[in-house]
Amino acid sequence: MNLAFDVLLGIALLLCAAGVFYSRDLFRAVVMFIAFGLLLALVWVRLDAPDLALAEAAIGAGLTGVLMIDAVAHLSAKNAHHQGAQFDQTGARPQLWSRILPVFSAVIIFILLLGAIWWRPDAPVSLPDLVAESLPESGVEHPITAVLLNFRSYDTLLEIAVLLVAVVVAMALKPDTSEPEAGNSKDPILHGLSARLVPPMLVVGVYILWAGSYMPGGAFQGGAILAAALVFLKLAGFGIERLADSLLRIGLALGFIVFLTVATSVMIGGRPFLTYPESVAGELIFFIEAMLTFSIGLILFSLFSQAPPPVAPTSSLQGEQDER
């Protein structure tokens, strides 16, 4: 029974990926991608990783789908400016030998991966046992939160730095034209929906953050939900950019700065970088996580909202290159 379910799930996942890759219509690829995210969340459930399922459900179903729909809509809206342009471009048709080569290399990659999975070396230490052993010292009860924010907090610190760099690049890329977006008329039903759905989203986001210290949940999942709520507000036509813009300057870097401050201030007490005193570890971790949630939510939202407004391409070679 178990195995049948897993096999079906895996095959469905592969089918979805194939559907993303071989759709001639770009929008079909996007919907297939949303379905892929949902199935991947189920796979994480089957792999005993409810934390990952939470993150994937928030990100795959909420954020990535919205980002991709936005990009494709942007593309098709622009294609309307020069009629006759194909919505779907599969690129130049390669010659026969240049078709065989990719197939060949993909098969080679697959076989190499199979070999790597089959003849994996035995790990010299058992990481789960190590984590379970030192869990009482970490200040939290949920092992994944302990790994993320205590045992391997370097990763988390660098991750938030990477996110910060991404958003700075996105802000730099933003064109200075600030014309109002078309189609932002307020729909009363949509307005009502967002008024009822966003508060529970925020509550659930905080609940997930709080739950992170003893069961699946934590800063990343909470941040993704917060970002989804903000994106939803923006889609529903609330002008939160003004608010977000002022909040952004404080919020974006806050998580990183707080994390770094805590990490270095423990050095005053003569401890190495990024180790917390055991007595207050739980409180410190929760404090850092709360700031991280806030920052991650704002960063993911601003990656969505910094997208250039839909204006016609300015170049003179519109038609020719698009025909490809």
Binding site: D48, A49, D51, L52, A55, E56, I59, L63, T64, L127, P128, V131, P143, I144, A146, V147, L148, R152, D155, T156, E159, V162, L163, A166, V167, G218, F220, G223, A224, I296, I299, L300, L303
Partner: peptide
């Protein structure tokens, strides 16, 4: 169940989406 790769992948998912 191994929490270490799960935690790493959790970081990875968020970096991948950004």
């Amino acid at each position: 169940t191994d929490p270490v790769p799960q935690a790493l992948v959790l970081t990875g998912i968020v970096v991948a989406v950004s």
